[in-house]
Design a protein around this nucleic acid. Structure first.
Length: 659
DNA sequence: TAATAACCCAGCGTC
DNA sequence: GACGCGGGGTTATTAT
């Protein structure tokens, strides 16, 4: 592409690479990868740092960000199949050693890549750590508008897509160039091979330039986010993905077998209990089950789905059980059996078999894929498997998290922010009572209990009171829901389903009224945020992470309400994401010097590490200090973290302190 | 016409 | 409020 401007070269000699790097302070790079021989037939192995190798590296270097006269890109083949034995490849060890010293671990060089975490993982396997400053052009693209009013999504930020949208270039796809084989099969001397590899590095450089220009004129805060947060966070994410979480496979399979037997038993019980055989499927939400409940048995439809069809979810079944207690008690066992069957099936399929299917054959661990900009608010998402929705406690007698274990000689350390969203709420609203609780180390749940029940703080904290537990549960749910956009109906439903408490709508209304009286700045803050959001049709976090709110001024009330709640939630949830990511950046800076600390996963307000057991006493205080440090200058509410440790993720306990 | 793929919808797990 | 996953059910597409 762009042959007048760009020259592509094949480089196999170390001296030539050395000369090419002279004076470079900005380097864009890209890896071509392929499966290791043992995994030749697995199409996905090329993307897995445990089963793939770096086949070649393309580089574009410039002395400065704005220098592009005579831009050149080179391709260094490292692992192409050399059937004739003619020495096609450069010396991989020597090349990596040189690049490590001159580029990857050189703090004077800005390292640019598209989807930086991918490259970072392959380097980690080689014992090489990318060192900031780094820049991930994919993260950058995700923080730019596709069109005014909505940001690019994952599907819009492939390098080829960006080349088309931004530069009008049509580039051959990977499949066009490689076909069904792997990149290692290509002849590196073929100009098409060189062009394919080099254009990726060159494009990354062009994106870097283009993105920074765009940010300056459109959303300067996002430029800071990409440079200072998202790009270094990609390195931290790479550590988590590359390491993975070791799985107790025998335990998992034993639990799966037990669940399977139990499920068969449940099915036959259902058949015996019912008036006729019912096709309940694997999750008991089939049309046949609905026909059986509502037509055959004549039970009333108490709840509908969004599309107006009869609902049979957990809440609906709960309602049917209430109805049957009065009108058809003989049906109660069947309804209970449906709930149990459904829950066990979920455990079995999603959390036992689902997890087992994701174990990496080389590492024996699950390597969750994290999308650091997967959620609109800046939160991470996680997939393959999603480790952010693993049941937090026993589900039908099985604690799924217990099958995620520490490696021998290591101990799991989970560090989570205590009530971070409420603390952020205190900071945003400047509510004196919220601020006081966190500055004086008060008990937020007790303060809320006192508020919503109209009792004294002392009464709220009296654990001998028979109502203590129930009240506190309500208060916790309210505190949880404050910044989710809590409404009386939502509060009533959640308390009924999760806490088994039946409160009237009026009672819930009164509690929310009392809450807003106790935290007097809460209501005004919410009104002010909504007004600003309606005017701008966007809303920002503390660090300027923007969310678009198309439809906040729509005539449809439902749509408007949705975006109003999003407007209230984004500053809270998004700032929590900002704070977590800032902590990751600070952690990343110290992890290379502390190889005994290995991050494994993150769940929104929590980071889980694997730490060499002998080093716990050094590691934990350091982690705590880094994570609890003030996140940015203006944030004047103390942060608190809680540490739990253990061998199994599901069974962590308090850390006793230095031994 | 039958098999397969693609898509949407419900339901449910997390913070 | 923010997500991802496995399953059911329907519709569109493909092969025969």
């Amino acid at each position: 592409m762009n042959s007048q401007q760009t020259q592509y070269r094949l480089v196999t000699e170390l001296a030539e690479l050395d000369a090419y790097l002279a004076g470079a302070t900005v380097v864009a790079f890209d890896f071509e990868t392929a499966p290791q021989p043992a995994w030749q037939d697995d199409g996905t192995a090329a993307l897995d740092p445990h089963r793939g190798i770096i086949v070649g590296i393309s580089l574009t270097v410039t002395p400065t960000m704005n220098e592009n006269n005579g831009l050149q890109a080179i391709y260094i083949p490292l692992g192409h199949h050399d059937l004739a034995g003619t020495g096609l490849n450069a010396d991989a060890g020597a090349v990596l050693a040189l690049l490590r010293q001159r580029v990857f671990e050189n703090p004077a060089v800005t390292k640019i890549a598209h989807n930086l975490g991918f490259e970072a993982k392959f380097l980690l396997v080689q014992g090489i750590t990318l060192v900031p400053p780094v820049y991930d052009t994919m993260a950058g693209a995700l923080l730019m508008y596709k069109e005014e009013g909505h940001f690019r999504r994952l599907a819009d930020v492939g390098l080829k897509t960006l080349a088309r949208d931004w530069l009008g270039l049509t580039l051959p796809s990977f499949v066009d160039v490689v076909g069904i084989g792997s990149f290692a099969d290509l002849d590196p001397r073929d100009p098409a091979t060189i062009a394919y590899a080099c254009s990726d590095a060159e494009l990354a450089w062009r994106c870097y330039k283009l993105e920074n220009d765009w940010f300056q004129t459109h959303i300067p805060a996002h430029q800071r986010l990409v440079h200072a947060i998202e790009s270094p966070v990609a390195l931290f994410t790479a550590r988590m993905e590359q390491r993975g979480f070791l799985v107790d496979r025998p335990g998992l399979m034993a639990a799966a077998a037990a669940a399977e037997a139990q499920l068969a038993q449940y099915l036959s019980n259902l058949e015996t209990m019912g008036r006729r055989p019912v096709q309940v499927g694997k999750n008991a939400a089939t049309n046949d089950l609905k026909a059986y409940l509502f037509a055959d048995l004549g039970l009333p439809v108490l709840k509908q789905t969004d599309t107006g069809k009869p609902s049979v979810d957990a809440e609906a079944i709960l309602g049917l059980r209430d109805y049957c207690r009065d009108h058809a008690p003989e049906q109660l066992p069947y309804l209970e059996a449906i709930s149990a069957y459904r829950g066990l099936a979920k455990l079995h399929k999603t959390y036992l078999l689902g997890l087992a299917a994701k174990i990496n054959p080389v590492s024996g661990a699950i390597h969750t894929q994290f999308f650091q900009l997967g959620a609109e608010t800046g939160r991470f998402t996680s997939a393959h498997p999603n480790c952010q929705n693993l049941p937090a406690g026993p589900l039908y007698g099985v604690n799924v998290r217990d099958f995620l274990i520490a490696r021998p000689g290591y101990t799991l350390v989970a560090v989570d922010y205590s009530q971070i969203e409420l603390r952020i709420g205190a900071w945003f609203t400047r509510d004196p009572n919220l601020l006081a609780v966190y500055r004086e180390g008060g008990d937020i749940h007790a303060v809320t209990t006192a508020a919503v029940y109209g009792i004294t703080l002392a009464a709220a904290q009296d654990s001998s009171d028979p109502d203590y537990k129930a009240r506190r549960t309500v208060a916790k749910n309210i505190n949880f829901g404050i910044f989710y956009g809590l409404y009386p109906k939502g509060l009533r439903d959640i308390l009924r389903l999760k806490a088994g408490q039946n409160l009237s709508l009026e009672a819930c209304e009164a509690m929310i009224f009392n809450l807003k009286r106790t935290y007097p700045e809460l209501g005004p803050w919410q009104e002010q945020v909504k007004t600003a959001a309606r005017y701008r049709e966007t809303v920002d976090t503390a660090l300027g992470r923007r969310r678009c709110l198309p439809g906040i001024n729509a005539p449809e009330e439902g749509l408007q309400g949705h975006f109003e709640r999003a407007a209230l939630n984004h500053p809270i949830q998004g700032t929590a994401a900002d704070i977590l990511k800032l902590a990751m950046v600070r952690l990343e800076a110290g992890l290379t010097a502390r190889p005994f600390i290995r991050p494994l996963l993150t769940v929104h307000d929590e980071i889980v590490f694997e730490v060499e057991t002998a080093q716990l006493g050094d590691a934990i205080p350091w982690i705590v200090a880094v994570m609890a440090a003030p996140p940015f200058a203006a944030f004047d509410v103390p942060l608190a973290v809680e540490v739990t440790v253990g061998q199994r993720y599901g069974t962590l306990g308090a850390w006793a302190g230095a031994e």
